[in-house]
């Protein structure tokens, strides 16, 4: 498997650390309530299809990356710097 780091370019999967769903980027307000925090921390979709998750190019430049990929075909559709994605969702 290969992923394209927006900084370094296409690299072998072994250079990356996998974290999980990119929902992690949308950290709720501290007062958002138990249900919202429960969702944020624990509840994840398990899509047969397109998913977005967070990887770190730990063995490379260190950038955290949002990877959009298809769990059925293993196709990687898009990669973007997490800091850019976070910046755009606020």
């Amino acid at each position: 498997m290969r992923l394209t780091c927006p900084v370094c370019g296409e690299r072998d999967r072994r250079e990356f650390y996998y974290m999980g769903d990119a929902v992690a980027l949308r950290r709720p307000d501290p007062e958002a309530g138990d249900a919202v925090w429960d969702d944020y921390l624990h509840n994840r979709d398990n899509p047969a299809g397109v998913t977005r998750d967070l990887w770190q190019h730990e063995g490379g430049c260190g950038a955290w990356i949002v990877v959009t990929r298809n769990t059925m075909t293993h196709e990687v559709l898009e990669t973007a710097l997490a800091s850019d994605v976070k910046g755009s969702v606020g």
Binding site: M19, A24, L25, R27, L54, Q56, W64, A82, G87
Partner: peptide, 10 residues
């Protein structure tokens, strides 16, 4: 790095 890049890149 996660907290900085993913939660508070500002």
């Amino acid at each position: 790095e996660y907290v900085h890049q993913c939660l508070c890149p500002e």
